[in-house]
Design a binder for these strands. Structure first.
Length: 293
DNA sequence: GTCCAGGGATTCA
DNA sequence: TGAATCCATGGA
C-alpha cells in the first residue's frame, strides 16, 4: 500500500451523499459494488468510496490530476447556497429533507445526450443495461481494477453501427433515433461543443432538432451534460410531483405546468427538479405535504 | 388530441 | 408463478 501514489485521492466533502448522487438516475454508468461505486468518467475507470465526509477515488493507473473527477462530481459546488435559492415551500422542504446531500453531476455532453435518447419509456435499471451494452460493443477498451472496461462510445463510433446492432443492445424503437443523431453529430452538422456558450433556449432548440430529442430529453442533456442550471426536465415522476404537490385538486393544462416549472423554482431550478424527482421515487413525498389550494 | 413503438424489471394476485 | 403494469418519450 502506497500512501503517496497517484492512483488514489481523497477529498473532504460535507453534505454530499455519494450513493444518492450516483444512483438516482441522472447517470447510468455507476454500479454499487462491495460498498463502493465503480464507473467510467471521461474514458477513465474509477472506484469511489464514501466514509463520513471523506470521498476517496482509486484508478487503475496514475493520474496527472483529478480535475476530471472533481468536475464530474461537482465537488466545488456550495450545496447550501443552492438549497437556499429554492422557493421556501413545503414540497421542497420535504424533498430536501428526504434527500440530504443529493448532488447534480456534470456529465460529458454527448454521453448524456445519447443516454437520455435511450431512456424514453425505459426504467432506470434498463437504461443502465442499454448503456452498458453500447459501451461494451462500441466503446474503446480501457483498463479497470478487474479486467477491461469500456469507455462510452463516441458519436462517430455509434455512427458506424447498424440499426440492427443497436437494436441488439435493447434499444428497440430508440435505435434509429440514436443512430441518426450520432450521424448528425459525427458529421459535424451539429457541434455540441458550441451549445455551452449559447443561451438556454437556443441550445435547447438545437438539441430538439435532433431525432429522438424532445423537450424532456433536451432538458436532461442541458442540465446534466451541458451545465444549464435552470433546465427543468419533466418526466412522469416530476409531472406527478408537480400535480400532486403544487396543483392538488386541480387539473392544470400541460402548458400551465410547463410555465410554472420554468418560472417558479429560481436560478437552480434543475437542482430543485432533481430533489423532487428523487424524493418522489423514494416515496417520500405524499399529497398531504402539498400546498393548500 | 390519439396512437404506437421494445421489453424486461417490478408488482401483485 | 403468471399476468398486469410501468417506465427520466418522441414522432407520425
Amino acid at each position: 500500500m502506497r500512501s503517496h501514489d497517484h492512483r488514489s485521492h481523497t477529498w473532504q466533502a460535507s453534505d454530499y451523499d455519494l450513493a444518492a448522487t450516483l444512483g438516482c438516475g441522472q447517470a447510468f454508468r455507476w454500479t454499487a459494488a462491495r460498498g463502493a461505486w465503480e464507473g467510467v468518467v471521461s474514458g477513465r475507470w474509477v472506484c469511489l468510496k464514501q466514509s463520513g465526509e471523506t470521498i476517496s477515488a482509486e484508478c487503475p493507473a496514475d493520474q496527472r490530476d483529478w480535475a476530471w473527477l472533481e468536475d464530474h462530481l461537482q465537488l466545488h459546488v456550495d450545496l447550501a447556497a443552492v438549497l437556499a435559492s429554492f422557493p421556501d415551500d413545503i414540497p421542497l422542504r420535504s424533498a430536501v429533507g428526504a434527500c440530504r446531500g443529493l448532488r447534480l453531476l456534470k456529465q460529458e455532453p454527448w454521453e448524456c445526450l445519447a443516454s437520455f435518447i435511450c431512456s424514453s419509456t425505459k426504467q432506470i435499471v434498463q437504461i443502465r443495461q442499454i448503456i452498458a451494452l453500447l459501451s461494451e460493443r462500441f466503446g474503446d477498451p480501457i483498463p479497470s481494477m478487474h479486467g477491461l472496461a469500456h469507455a462510452f462510445p463516441s458519436a462517430a463510433q455509434i455512427a458506424t453501427a447498424t440499426e440492427a446492432e443497436l437494436r441488439a443492445c435493447k434499444l428497440g424503437f430508440r435505435a434509429p433515433y440514436l443512430l441518426a443523431t450520432a450521424r448528425r453529430i459525427a458529421s459535424g452538422e451539429l457541434n455540441l461543443d458550441a451549445l455551452t456558450a449559447m443561451p438556454l433556449a437556443g441550445a435547447r432548440e438545437q438539441l430538439e432538432s435532433l431525432p429522438g430529442v424532445g423537450r424532456k430529453v433536451a432538458d436532461c442533456a442541458l442540465l446534466f451534460g451541458f451545465g444549464f442550471p435552470t433546465a427543468f426536465p419533466v418526466d412522469v415522476w416530476v409531472l406527478k410531483a408537480l400535480r400532486q404537490l403544487y396543483f392538488p385538486k386541480r387539473k392544470p393544462r400541460p402548458a400551465r405546468l410547463r410555465h410554472f416549472a420554468d418560472t417558479y423554482f429560481g436560478p437552480h431550478a434543475g437542482y430543485a427538479q432533481q430533489y423532487l424527482f428523487h424524493a418522489m421515487r423514494l416515496g417520500k413525498l405524499s399529497p398531504a405535504t402539498g400546498l393548500p389550494g
